[in-house]
């Protein structure tokens, strides 16, 4: 007997194309959010998406990040210095919105089967070059932070850490010490990825087959439509004037 799938499985196994759509939707809705209430709606939904996939640890981290933004937003109002308040306000304003893209990207790339993504895009007849490039971007973007952390630690050990003082005193040298190892390391990772891709036959001209059944199901469309609908409702209710202008 076929085991009945829970909501956790459905969201976790959502078609990669639908996950891509959700990234676009939440990034766009952050641009459409004119106030904290509208943003809060997005935040709750995003944390909900993490929870729905059973990504408890990431959900907690994301919730803490969003909570920090909301608390900061609230505290800024009480700052006595108007100039400083305005500067801080705009910084928090930007971070609140830009972070959504990275948070959603992390949501999609966690436990993402790159082969599913490539098969899904191949089924949409997207050119091979674009598929491979996008797949590598998804694979590498979450890793680049770790790579940079290793480099930063090594720099600290050698007394040329990425500190504010070093950046001010020796900007060119500090940037060179940080950027060059990052690029060299990234190129090495690129070579390893290329070797792996060629071993899997990604450079073959024939159509790639998949062991897993990757196709757009009705439930994928319905779940995505439902999430998009809830996000849209939040924007409509919370934005002044009660509507979106597109």
């Amino acid at each position: 007997m076929k085991k009945r799938e829970s909501i956790f499985d459905i969201v976790d196994e959502l078609d990669p194309r639908m996950k891509l759509i959700l990234i676009v939707v939440f990034t766009t809705s952050s641009y459409l959010s004119q106030n904290t209430e509208a943003l809060l709606w997005n935040y709750i939904l995003i944390v909900g998406l993490y929870l729905a996939r059973g990504l408890w640890k990431s959900a907690r981290k994301t919730a803490i990040l969003f909570a920090c933004f909301v608390i900061l937003d609230f505290l800024i109002e009480y700052l006595p210095w108007q100039g400083f308040r305005a500067t801080l306000d705009i910084i928090v304003f930007f971070l609140q919105r830009i972070s959504i893209f990275f948070v959603m990207w992390n949501w999609m790339s966690t436990r993402l089967r790159i082969s599913d993504l490539t098969t899904a895009l191949q089924n949409m007849h997207v050119p091979k070059g674009v598929i491979i490039t996008l797949a590598v971007v998804f694979r590498y973007l979450p890793t680049v932070g770790d790579e940079f952390r290793y480099i930063s630690n090594t720099m600290k050990l050698r007394g040329i850490g990425l500190t504010f003082g070093n950046i001010v005193r020796h900007p060119a040298a500090t940037i060179e010490y940080a950027l060059v190892p990052l690029i060299i390391r990234s190129m090495t990772v690129g070579d390893e990825l290329a070797a792996s891709a060629m071993t899997r036959g990604l450079d073959l001209k024939s159509k790639r087959t998949s062991y897993r059944d990757v196709r757009l199901r009705l439930r994928d469309v319905l779940v995505t439509a439902c999430i998009v609908g809830i996000a849209a409702v939040g924007i409509v209710i919370n934005n002044p004037g009660g509507g979106m202008s597109l």
Partner: peptide, 27 residues
């Protein structure tokens, strides 16, 4: 394939620089 992967890696690096340097400047 190797070229596509190099392009993707460079794109990620470009985006990281934009996020780390460009975002604070654009504030």
């Amino acid at each position: 394939v190797r070229d596509y992967i190099t392009t993707a890696i460079c794109f990620v690096l470009l985006y990281v620089v934009f996020a780390v340097v460009g975002t604070p400047v654009g504030m």
